[in-house]
């Protein structure tokens, strides 16, 4: 055996351990769920009948699942771009200041490192109607009418979304800042000497160079919002995703189907739909951004 081969063998050996873990903990249960999604698997019955595509039909025919799916897309379409744009803007601003830089960084990262359950409950209290909620107390002091926030089917989804955006910004700002600092200063200086203004520097140099990081964050945030569960569960009454299912996400629908209705087969079918959705969105993002990332390369 040559030395190179030996080295490769060692590498494989080390890779094998996480692979076993990955197969056992990820692929095992996943394939099991796929198989069981075609059965009437329920914790309330002792049966294991093959149903073919019945569960998938039932899930697609359930207006609540459709509503949850639309909500989920709503969360992702609004949430992910908002997080990316806001955190990029904040990171660029943070990069300019010199005084109190670490203080501001800490302020932005704090929501992200706070447990999301705690964040959700604090916001739930702040969103309360009079005489409880601090936001409505402020409105009241200014003579403005009170807002229903989480109690309104029109406002609840956006109220939860805003909290999740606020949380995720902390993470994205940190990554963007690290990315900005890897941009070689000589590139920017050279451009300046050639007469480029601030806008040109931003759009022709900084943003294109940040493209790989933006791609990474866009995919991660897309997935994050498509899987949204914890804030919805904790900010809606009795974790129902209400009022009137207006905040229910696909992940919460799956959870309720599996663990309050105990219809595990049906929940597995629903989770495959969510899996397909996340997969599709991620592939589209990869395709779209990959082109831009290579096209936008600075010569």
């Amino acid at each position: 055996m040559t030395l190179a081969k030996k080295k490769a063998m060692t590498a494989y050996l080390f890779l094998a351990i996480p692979l076993v873990f990955f197969l056992g903990v990820r692929f095992g249960p996943m394939s099991y769920a796929m198989v069981r999604s075609t059965t009437d698997w329920s914790l309330l019955r002792n049966t294991n009948e093959f149903l073919a595509l019945e569960n998938f039909k039932a899930v697609l025919g359930d207006p609540v699942f459709m509503k949850a799916l639309v909500n989920t897309i709503h969360y992702a379409i609004l949430g992910a771009p908002l997080v990316i744009i806001l955190s990029l803007a904040i990171a660029l601003l943070l990069n300019r200041i010199t005084m109190g830089r670490s203080f501001f960084r800490l302020v932005y990262i704090l929501p992200y490192i706070t447990p999301i359950v705690a964040v959700s409950w604090v916001w739930r209290w702040m969103y309360q109607s009079p005489p409880l909620g601090i936001i409505n107390a402020l409105f009241s002091a200014l003579g403005l009418p009170a807002m229903d926030f989480l109690l309104s089917p029109d406002q609840a989804l956006h109220s939860i979304l805003a909290v999740n955006v606020w949380v995720e910004i902390g993470y994205c700002v940190t990554i963007f800042l690290a990315g900005i600092q890897t941009i070689p200063m000589d590139c920017i200086e050279a451009a300046r000497i050639d007469g480029a203004n601030g806008r040109q520097v931003l759009f022709k140099i900084v943003l294109p160079l940040l493209m790989p990081i933006t791609l990474f964050l866009a995919i991660m945030q897309g997935i994050q919002f498509l899987r949204i569960f914890t804030p919805v569960y904790n900010m809606s009454t009795q974790g129902m995703g209400g009022p009137l299912d207006s905040t229910k996400s696909a992940a919460l629908y799956i959870y309720q189907t599996a663990f309050t209705k105990f219809e595990l087969g049906r929940a597995a079918a629903a989770s495959l739909f969510l899996f397909a959705l996340i997969m599709t969105v991620t592939l589209i993002q990869l395709k779209l951004f990959d082109k831009k990332a290579t096209n936008g390369e600075v010569a």
Partner: peptide, 17 residues
């Protein structure tokens, strides 16, 4: 009710859940 007409003390709790 407060000045904006918001309920600040409920005469009867209405809690279906």
């Amino acid at each position: 009710y407060d000045a904006q007409g918001n309920l600040i003390q409920a005469g009867l709790a209405m809690q279906p859940n």
